[in-house]
Each structure stands twice: as structure tokens, then as C-alpha cells.
Amino acid sequence: MSEIIVENLSKTFLAKDGSVEALKNVNLTIGSGDIYGIIGMSGAGKSTLVRCMNFLEAPSQGRVLIDGKSLGDYTEKELRKQRQDIGMIFQHFNLLMQKSVLENVCFPLYIQGKKKAEAHERARELLEIVGLSDKQQAYPAQLSGGQKQRVAIARALASDPKILLCDEATSALDPQTTASILDLLKDINQRFSITIVIITHQMSVVRKICSHVALLKDGQVVEQGLVEQIFTHPKSAVAKELILKDSGSDAKTGAPRSKIKSGEKIRIVFSENSAFEPVIANLVLTFREPVNILKADTKNVGGVAKGEMILEFIKDSANVEAMKQYLADRGLAIGEVTEDV
């Protein structure tokens, strides 16, 4: 377990055709044992940020502290030692294609100077943990994407790290495989008390396993906090967009796209403290006016079931504000929807 503090971090890349400010004054505190999500669109600076956390990329400004010690103070040699405490997995797995599964997992152990026999024994234990005991002698080319990521996870765990950085680790995987890899990560977090940082562009990933999340846009943190909070009360436009794009629903009872002349749309979220009454039915009865349900989902947010609905009022309805108030009074979180549903 380790705590990561990112302090006033900026990173500027110098290119021939001008410079790119990939990160601008980023501040984050990632608590020991957290599963911390960093979400943002492509090019937001997520990879750069996570690469600063093990100094694969040296920041232009600011500090990264691991358990209170600044990575910038280490010599090259100390840094290499420190990196053994920080495992990392990647979108494209990055395994040695010419080495067997077992030898891939042994790689970090050889770096630590472990002997072959000892390394093999430890690697076998790790392959057992990730459920690939029968693939020791296989080569990466013979494995599926999910299996390759499991090998990468076993390899990242070999040096008993206190932190695991995951850069788009499930982005190349199908939904089922993604779910099983996320389950494995959650299990690892609990069993070995490893702090996990999850980089992703998918809200569904954050929702499924993260306790905290930071939202990155154009190199800046625009929102951060508990996942539950951001999911229920997204403030920024990016947050709303990401939540809306979240297609990894657990149960879908979606209505088809509305063909009716569209009125104002709202997004409502039920949480455990919402009233038990049939809210929508009562709303319709009270105002004697139909509402269109464009989408309805139940989502698992950090282990808590959340209902989410996109409602559309009839065009130019005079009752919109009153209806919103009605819903709010019944404990529902309400957000705007500006995009197409």
C-alpha cells in the first residue's frame, strides 16, 4: 500500500512544430489502497500523467510523491529500484513475444537478481493467481487478449509492488473480458492491498471498480472526487458527456430513439435514498402530462446499484420547472442532457 501525491504537475513536450502542454498544473492525492480512476478523452494527457507517476516521463514542473518521497530526488539507480515497487500494465500488453509466459513473468525477478529456480517458483504462484497455470509454456502469440493481459498482470505483480498503474488496460478487450480483468484487479487490490491507478476513457470501467476518479481534459483536472458523487452530480460538460456515452450498462431496458418532436431532456439518477414510490407514474398523474422515457439503466457504481433515466418532456411544456422540482423533492439527482441520446 502506498499513497501517491501529484503536486502542481506540468509537462510540456517540445516538438519541432511548437510545444505541447500535455499536463497543466495537475494536483491529485491518491490514497493508500484506493482504486483511483483517471478518465478523459483521447489526448487529454492521461498516459503522460500516469507515466509521470513512475517517472518514465520526467515532469517539466511539479512533484510526484510516493509515500512522502519525491521521485525527482532519486538518482537514476534509486529510481530503477523504486520502479520495482510500482507495477504497470498497458493497453497492448507489451509482453516479450519471443519468450514463454513463464519467462515473461520471471523477467522482473531476473532484474532483481533472482535465480532461475526461485523465479520460476514465484512465477508459477503468480500464474496461479491470474488463472493461467496451464499456459506456462505457451508463447504470447498463442493467447487471447484477456489471457495476455493476465500474463501482464502476473508480471507486474512479480516484484510485490505496492502500486499498480493501468494505462487503458481493458481498452483492447471485449466487454466480457474487460469485466473479468476488472474483477481480477479488484481482487488483487483487496488481497494484496495494492493501490491501483486506472487510466481509461470509459466511464463503465470507472463505475465498475473505482472508488475515486479524476476527470482530465486538455491536461487539466476538471473534476475529482468519489465516483458515486461525480456519477450522481456531474458538474462539468465532459463528465456529463462521458456518463452519457457510458454504454457498458449492466441491465438495459432502453427505449428506442424518440421520434416525437423533442422537448427538453433531463437525466435523473435514483440512489438508495430515493423514495420508494413509483415516481414517474406519480409525476405523470400529478401533472396530467406524458413524459417520454428515452433510456433507462441500472448501473453498478462502486458496488451500489444506481438507476439512471433520460426523460424527455413534451415540446414547449409549461410544467418543466415544476416537474423537475417534483423529482428533486423525491430525492432524485437531476442533470441536463444537451447531447443526442
Binding site: 530503477r80 523504486q82 520502479r83 497492448h92 507489451n94 523477467f107 532484474i111 532483481q112 508480471r155
Partner: peptide, 20 residues
Amino acid sequence: GVIEAARSMGAGTFTIVWKV
């Protein structure tokens, strides 16, 4: 990517040349 993975595991230049 493989080189990056080796660096993230704390491999030095010699190890990366020789083993990667």
C-alpha cells in the same frame, strides 16, 4: 511498448539491450 514495460520494471540500459 515492450521497452517501456521493461523500463517500468526497473530495467537498466544494459538489461534492456541484452534481454529485450
